[in-house]
Simulated scan of single mutants.
Amino acid sequence: MSTMKPSKPLSYAVLGFGYSFLYLPILLLIIYSFNESKLVTVWSGFSTKWYWALLEDDELITAALLSIKIALMTATASVVVGTWAGFVLARLNRFRLFPLFAGMVNAPLVIPEVIQGISLLLLFVAMEQAFGWPEGRGVFTIWIGHVMLCVSYVAIIVQSRVRELNRSLEEAAMDLGARPLKVFFVITLPLISQALVSGWLLSFTLSLDDLVLTAFLSGPGSTTLPMVVFSRVRLGLNPEMNALATLFILVVSVGVVAGNLYMRSAQRKRDREMQLAFKQA
C-alpha cells in the first residue's frame, strides 16, 4: 500500500508560514524600536532616540532591574529544588506517598495561575495575622510564588533526563565504594547538566514574564516590569517599551545561544570521556 509524501515546496511553505507567524511580530517590534515617530505604528524615519529616552525612564528601569533580580533568584532556587524533585520522581518511585508527591509536584502545571495567586495571597495574609510574618507583600512573596510555579517545570525536565541515563556509571562508582550522595554530585549531576541549564533558562523566562502571580503577591515598592508594561499599554503603546523589549530579546538570545553552545560542548566532552573509558576497559 503506497503512502503519499508531501511535496517539498508545500513543506517549505508550511514551515515558512509557521516561522513567520512566530517571529515576524518580534522582528516588527525590533524595527519599530528605531522609529523616530512617537506613534509606534507609523514609520517616520530611523532614530535611536527611544533608547536614550529609556535611560531616563526611572520607573521602567527600576521595574526591569527588579524583574531580573527576582528571575535570577527564582531560576536558581527552582533548579535546586526541582532537581531533587525530578530525581525522586525518576528513581525513588516506590514509597507509599509517591502518587501524592507526584501530584503535588505537577499541580502547578495544571492549576490556573489565578487560583495559585489567590491561594498564596490568602496563605500569606493568614500567616501575617497569626505570626506577623511576612510583613506585607513584596519581593519575598513574589519569589515564593514564582519558585512554586517554576519548580514543576524543572522537575519534569530533570525527570525525563534522569530516566534516560545509563546507570552503569553510577553502579560502578558505588561498587568502588562511593556513597550515593557523592555519586549524585560527581556522576549524576554532570550527566544532567544540560537539563539543569534548560530548566534554569526556562525558569528565568517564566519568572521574568509572569504577571498574574506577581499581581497578587506584590506590594508597594515591588512593581515588576510586566506590571508596568501592562499598566502603560492600557493607556497606549509607548516606543520606549519597544526599545526595552529589543534589549531583552538581545540579552535572552545571547543567553540561549550561550546555553546551547555550553550544552553541545559538554555533550562532546562526555562522549569523548565515554569513548576513552570504553577503550581503557
Rank of each mutant, 00 (worst) to 15 (best):
S7F: 03
P9M: 11
P9N: 13
Y12K: 07
V14Q: 09
I26Q: 00
L27A: 14
Y32R: 08
S33I: 01
F34S: 07
W43N: 14
F46A: 14
K49D: 15
Y51F: 13
L54C: 11
A63Q: 05
A63F: 05
I68T: 04
A75G: 06
T83P: 07
N93K: 08
R94M: 08
L97Q: 01
F101Y: 12
N106H: 07
I118G: 01
S119E: 04
L122D: 11
F124Y: 07
G132M: 04
P134T: 03
F140D: 04
G145E: 04
V147Q: 12
M148T: 15
V151L: 12
V151A: 10
V158M: 09
N166C: 08
E171R: 05
A178W: 08
R179N: 07
P180Y: 12
F185Q: 02
F185V: 09
L196D: 04
L201S: 09
L202E: 09
L202C: 10
D210L: 00
D210P: 00
G219L: 02
M227Q: 12
V228W: 01
V233M: 07
N238S: 10
E240G: 05
N242A: 02
A245Y: 02
S253E: 03
N260F: 08
Y262W: 07
E273H: 08
E273F: 04
M274I: 13
M274G: 05
A277P: 04
Q280C: 08
